[in-house]
């Protein structure tokens, strides 16, 4: 049933495709971190229309499937003249989808900073920018790092969806190998194991990080 020789022979191809998966995850996560913070700021804005629109946007993106959004970005945007490669469409889709989750995480982190910190900054005559950069964010970010880490793993596990918009990431590579050789057992099982190992290792890493952050 399981052919070890065949399994080893396809490993190089799969590992190469895994690099695409990992780079899509990392780029998407960076985008999500930045966009998420911007969304969190926009939602806290005193300008009511901006915070309402942002709230609606976050709600909409969070309650529709990532796959539908990826199709939208990949097939609809070119009609408006924005041509995207599968990888960049995928990174934008992942980043946008997860930024709405991360914006809620940031919000929780910011809300958890005691009021006294804001008052102290006002008392010290700090500017708004300085208050955010040197008082609020340094206290808001560290506690939420483990939560962000969990979203990172979640995003990693969502990258196979990019195969739907023709990106040859690791699952698509497995499918192509399978369709050439008519053996699906090894490639798809190996991909599953790769995900299992990588996400298990990273979740252990996050647990360690969490324990370390809680020490302070």
């Amino acid at each position: 049933m399981w052919d070890w020789e065949y399994a080893f022979s396809i490993m190089p191809q799969l590992l190469k495709a895994l690099q695409i998966t990992i780079s899509a995850t990392i780029l998407g996560f960076l985008l999500a971190c930045i966009l998420g913070l911007l969304l969190a700021f926009a939602r806290r804005s005193n300008f009511k229309p901006l915070s309402l629109v942002t709230g609606g946007f976050v709600e909409f993106v969070r309650s529709t499937p990532l796959l539908a959004q990826l199709y939208f970005i990949f097939y609809v945007l070119p009609q408006c003249g924005i041509m995207l490669s599968p990888l960049s469409a995928g990174v934008i889709g992942l980043g946008l989808h997860y930024s709405t989750y991360l914006s809620e995480v940031y919000r929780a982190g910011i809300d958890a900073v005691p009021r006294g910190q804001w008052e102290a900054s006002t008392a010290l005559n700090f500017s708004r920018t300085r208050t955010w950069l040197s008082v609020i964010l340094p206290q808001a970010i560290p506690p939420i790092i483990p939560v962000m880490g969990n979203y990172f793993i979640g995003m990693f596990k969502d990258t196979p969806l990019l195969s739907a918009i023709t990106l040859v990431e690791v699952l698509q590579a497995a499918k192509i190998i399978g369709s050439h050789t008519f053996r699906y057992i090894e490639p798809i099982t190996i991909v599953g194991l790769m995900f299992l190992v990588l996400s298990y290792v990273s979740s252990v890493g996050i647990r360690r990080l969490e324990a370390r952050l809680n020490r302070w």
Binding site: D158, P160, L171, I188, G192, F195, Y200
Partner: peptide, 14 residues
């Protein structure tokens, strides 16, 4: 730990 789509593929193709 494994991706939902990989699980679906596994159940359907393997």
């Amino acid at each position: 730990g494994t991706s939902l789509l990989v699980q679906l593929f596994w159940a359907y193709f393997v």
